[in-house]
Design a protein around this nucleic acid. Structure first.
Lengths: 341, 341
DNA sequence: GTTAGCACTCACGACAAACGAGTGCTAACA
DNA sequence: TGTTAGCACTCGTTTGTCGTGAGTGCTAAC
């Protein structure tokens, strides 16, 4: 039913459609891609391919366009043969030299680079808070009644937020408290830390306000709000593609991006797989039914993984995107493993 | 040449056009806005107004649309009579209750609220670094060779970034250094601090790496990169307006937003004026020649000012936007003056 | 199994006609 | 002298028609 020749033809159709975004006809295939077959033969094969569900026909007098099922086949093939070369590695390294160690800056910068290389909208996500272990806690006075709580976690990730503190705590007292907390909590995950903080809270009742604030903040870091965990690059890049020439569609897409929570959920779905390709309806998000989402992961060295990804039209250059993501993932992994020392 | 009646007619035309975005004809004015005048009279007046440069005519059989000059007159009138009521104050307060003290969070949240109330794209900018005075400096160890430099400035603004440190400095040493630096630099502006750091650097030659890193970072905070100083809300809101139904225009607009530097420059131009209204070409930015930019300022209590603004089509609801900005400015000012204590 | 040929379908662009919103001008009116 | 009714005119928009061409499916011959 699906022999090698059909597959070659399907591949040609997909390649052509990815390039041009216009429905491809039998003549195009027989002439542009040297198959040694006449258009009539191609036509018969295309008819079969349509029956098998790999091709759609916008209307009877137009060419065919690949279905989601076709892209799925195409991508599976791509992943299997593993033609993912890390050619762009050098390119990425050159763009990505600035070594600020702050997590937020890193993911922003990574997203920027990713979208400028791929020319698609890109997403970069930090590991979920619950997987991280604490390295240092420190309180920095801001006003007499508030302080900045800095939490340094494994992989050199820094999170901070302002909390209320009892006003009788001066800089030195805050520092002492910080050292105590660091000593006790260091090496534990945020989830564990939360439990331990309960105990500490009972122990130092007179410091209730601060400790309560800290616990609250740790909890917030744990199920981190979308805003800081997710960065994206080139959101308006989607407008470069003819399938988004419709303003309504564009608005729906951009609005989706603005509500980062939905995206976070999407990226978190398959957090442990090295590569993920979700094509059109496979994303499960109505706004993305004409988009594909390709993701890869990077490692922080200690079993925690972050996710990077690219969103574009279903007729995405999967090969190029996959290899770029792969290279970027490696780069990020290297960056964070350096930090560990 | 420009009597009261003409002005009333012009105002009606502007109001109508702001509402509908379609060229308004003489009949509409005479019927919808009860002028007690026939369409023929209005017609004569409109002809005069066009000659005076207040109205444009897309083509001969269409109605008239207000020119930039007309909006200018309209807005000046608005500002003069000062009909800017802070009606939305309660609304803003309700949206804006969360009191995280971190500057980045505050401006993001403010931008969000602003765009959700006005339904335009909003901008919120922190004061420029050079105006701020230092309150606290603190180093938090991240890895053995890097630390997070936290700079707390006047108004409770917190900036942080990772720097390299000499590896022989442990947590306590970093703390001691932090206290010393805070004691010396506290109360000085960032610009002054830079000069002083040079001196300190000569004094403690053995701490060259850290001090150098700090100086570099202070300098970077001073002419702060756009990324952290500027937040915007609802970037895709512009797509709701028919004048941006063209994908090309939309792309140009969104790309401009993505390069935050250009916007920063624009917002900084009139930093000290309470209100600014720049209409179409007045912005000086080609991409914004069909947009208006309205800004207001908020105060951090100590002579430093931040800017908030709204970008929308030239037919913007100036009155509503101005009063919303005014209310939001007050709210932010109050927020930061609380922080001061 | 492959291919040439041919009738058929149908989106798309061009062109024309009908439409109508809005104008400017003129003449009559208060 | 200012206002208004009336009317011819303009011109963008809408609607309809038609020709064109890309592409198809089917049939028959190789």
């Amino acid at each position: 039913m699906m022999d090698a020749r059909k597959f070659r033809i399907l591949q040609a159709i997909i390649d052509d459609y990815i390039l041009t975004a216009i429905p491809v006809g039998s003549r195009t295939i027989s002439k542009k891609y040297e198959m040694g077959l006449s258009s009539a033969t191609i036509r018969n094969e295309m008819s079969d391919l349509e029956e098998l569900g790999y091709l759609d026909q916008p209307h009877v007098s137009a060419g065919r366009i690949p279905s989601a099922k076709a892209y799925r086949l195409y991508v599976d093939q791509l992943l299997q043969t593993g033609k993912i070369d890390s050619l762009d590695a050098a390119n990425i390294r050159s763009h990505f030299s600035e070594r600020t160690g702050k997590m937020e800056d890193v993911i922003n910068s990574a997203a920027q680079v990713l979208s400028s290389i791929t020319q698609y909208t890109s997403l970069v996500m930090t590991p979920s808070g619950s997987e991280l272990t604490i390295r240092t806690l420190q309180l920095v006075p801001v006003t007499t009644s508030s302080a900045l709580l800095v939490i340094v976690t494994s992989g050199g990730i820094v999170r901070d937020s302002v909390i209320h503190v009892d006003s009788d705590l001066d800089t030195d007292a805050l520092y002492a408290l910080s050292r105590m907390l660091t000593e006790r909590l260091s090496g534990h995950t945020l989830t564990e830390a939360l439990v331990m903080l309960e105990g500490i809270n009972r122990e130092f009742v007179q410091k209730k306000t601060v400790l309560g604030g800290i616990a609250q903040q740790v909890a917030q870091v744990e199920n981190q709000q979308a805003k800081t965990r997710l960065a994206f690059g080139g959101p308006s890049k989607i407008l470069n593609f003819p399938e988004y020439n419709d303003v309504e569609k564009a608005k729906a897409f951009l609005s989706l991006l603005e509500s980062k929570d939905a995206l976070l959920r999407l990226l978190q779905q398959h957090q442990n797989v090295a590569f993920t390709v979700r094509i059109g309806p496979e994303t499960g998000v109505p706004e993305l039914k004409e988009c594909s989402l390709v993701t890869a992961t990077y490692s922080l060295g200690d079993h925690t993984h972050g996710t990077i990804g690219v969103i574009g039209p279903t007729r995405m250059e999967y090969g190029r995107v996959l290899s770029t993501l792969s290279a970027m993932g490696d780069q990020l992994t290297r960056l964070f493993s350096q930090d560990k020392e």
